[in-house]
Design a binder for these strands. Sequence first.
RNA 1: GGCCGGAUGCCCGAGUGGACUAAGGGAGCGGAUUGCAAAUCCGCGAUUCGUGGGUUCGAAUCCCACUCCGGCCUCCA
Length: 541
Amino acid sequence: MPTRFYNTLHHRLEDFIPLHPGPDAANPILGSQIGIYSCGPTVYDYAHIGNFRAFLFSDVLRRYLELRGAQVTHVMNMTDVGHMTDDQLADGAGRDKLEVAVEKMKENKKDGKALIENPNDPFAVADFFARAFLQDARLLGLGVVADYDLATTHESKERIIPRPTRHIPEFIEMIQTLMARGHAYKGDDGVVYYDIHSFPAYGKLSGNSLEQLSHGAGGRTNEQAAKKHPADFFLWKPDAHHIMRWPSPWGEGYPGWHIECSVMSIRALGQSFDLHTGGEDNIHPHHECEIAQSEGATGKPFVKYWMHTRHLMVNGEKMSKSRGNFFTIRDLTTMGFDPVVIRWGLISTRYREPMNFTVQSLHEAAAAITTLRDLADKLITAVAAVDEAAGDGDFAVPDGLSEAVHDPVLEPADQRMLAEFNLAMDDDLNVSGALAALFTWANPLHKHKKLAYPQARSALQSLKKVDHVLGVVFVDLQALPQDKQRHVEDLMQKRDAARQHKDFAASDMIRRQLLSLGVEVKDTPAGTTWRPRLAPEKLSQ
RNA sequence: GGCCGGAUGCCCGAGUGGACUAAGGGAGCGGAUUGCAAAUCCGCGAUUCGUGGGUUCGAAUCCCACUCCGGCCUCCA
């Protein structure tokens, strides 16, 4: 059964065969080199869970290909050039989003909530939200950010998470190439436009024809004398007053919305690469324009497989700022959800299904993860005892993301689970199906009070493999703050004392108190332990 | 208007012609265990897959119509 992905370019499921496959034709992913470019965040504000659904999808894709033995180069841009907010005009006559962000920052400063020193500086504002994004992404375990953190030089970091403001001269270079090759022209208004008539495949990705686009039944393409076709999009706009501007052969101004991804992806991955991901809203126009630019400039096929995530809904409604029904990562962690819970909540539905996000779904995620983590603890304990006796302690430490996945001989049940997990993932990343395989496998393991060593070791290894993709079991949870931790330990002592005196009323009261602090208490014959909960106490309805 | 998805138990969500008496998770209920909990274990729950027709020996799965929900059609992940 080959690995199949839905390729937006051809509107169908296709066998995934890397451009640089491994030596085994029957399993071309093993030993292959794969390049993935993911459209990342814009840094004018905190990213919300809808954004992160898309980023996490690309992370699951990347991790799954790694599990299957590919060497993946994953690149994700962080857009720090402001784009327009006004959707009536395609040519940048609206307000710049960074300008809006700057205004907000200034408001905050007036209110005494200064987040940065100089809110007038759009670069500083972008930096601020870029840092916030990286923090959130680390919490959620994005592999691309782990790569970024591991990279030691500015240049290598810039390949992994490039920022457009650092590559403007390269944009200009590509625009010049496009002009030289007859794909771009300078209009009477001085703006440089892409000539979509010069690129017959324009519209292929979204299933639009030029005919439909020119009619603009949605009413949003703008007729403009300077453009040859209403759907021609701008590559460079001279504007001496724009909030962010750079010198160019066409005057001081700023680049178009799409050029950054063409330039930066080619820069990091070459003129042709395997996979390009993004949210469904990117299909048109962003990715359409990227293809036109990239292939127009290089004359080579740009991306082999395009994959797009469906949008996230919240409580059955489209997420939007006006409704106020969106969450940021920090909103949810403040509520008391551990990041692994958020990760699970956002990856456990297949990327191509529309997904409805609810707080309830996070509680469910917490329960599911707890089951797996308990199993992992049990396996580690069973394995550690023997390994320690044998002087072999290599199982205490979880595998790092980039560490190769070993292949010892696994028990048949474990092999079966991995095969079923892979089968589901091979079917266009069917995570729900893969999780079903995992839980079906995990169930009988709970029954054994004590597992025999070889079984435990094999099971542990298998769980680590799937967790390379899931990233929720062998990762550290958020630690309690020091003062809270002391408070908890204090309460635990009091409770122990109460229990020794058989004062169960007091003991139960303290347990409730601990619960509201986000701590779960467990009484066992061996003693009483506590641990932080993955989710806050459920509010009674 | 054009294009594209979706509707499965209380909730989330697999399954896309016969092994479906419909996976898995969550919540619930009864029992074991526990001072009480938690965890774990045992047991219970869709004769049915939005509605109506059709094709077929056989349909959640294919076809047609309808209803509802959502997305894109130059802000957006």
